[in-house]
């Protein structure tokens, strides 16, 4: 049971990649990239967790969970949001220039 968090994190990463490959629309692709990244949040926070520890705020008595991992996850979330915004902006321009967002119909998209 104690492996569940890590397995869920791995699952999110891989299902995101699966979605990117399976995608038939570029907006869908971008969302799948964001899902893949959410796997890293779950992984980082799970690593920092400790049973019975409280949130790392207000000098609570007793142990706190690892604040370092939380700080890293915060950074990770910002990265995710900004990368999503940039990719969506590119998708909007692709749709305008080519009239389609189906990766199979875009000859230049070889990935």
């Amino acid at each position: 049971m104690s492996l569940l968090p890590y397995l869920v994190a791995g699952w999110l990463l891989l299902i995101g990649c699966f979605g990117v490959v399976r995608s038939r629309g570029l907006v869908h692709t971008v969302v799948c990239v964001a899902v893949a990244q959410s796997g890293t949040y779950v992984l980082l926070l799970s690593i920092g967790f400790q049973y019975g520890a409280s949130a790392p705020v207000q000098g609570a008595p007793g142990p706190v969970v690892d604040p370092v991992m939380q700080a890293l996850t915060l950074t990770d979330i910002v990265v995710s949001a900004t990368v999503t915004a940039l990719l969506l902006a590119l998708v909007i321009q692709i749709a305008k220039r080519t009239g389609t967002v189906d990766p199979d119909q875009l000859d230049e998209l070889r990935g």
Partner: peptide, 23 residues
């Protein structure tokens, strides 16, 4: 549940509002 209120705040603002809005 993982005792990460800061991260939860970010996630609710970004992950369930801003990003879906952009999408």
């Amino acid at each position: 549940l993982l005792q990460a209120p800061d991260v939860a705040l970010s996630q609710v603002a970004v992950g369930s509002a801003v990003v879906p809005l952009m999408v």
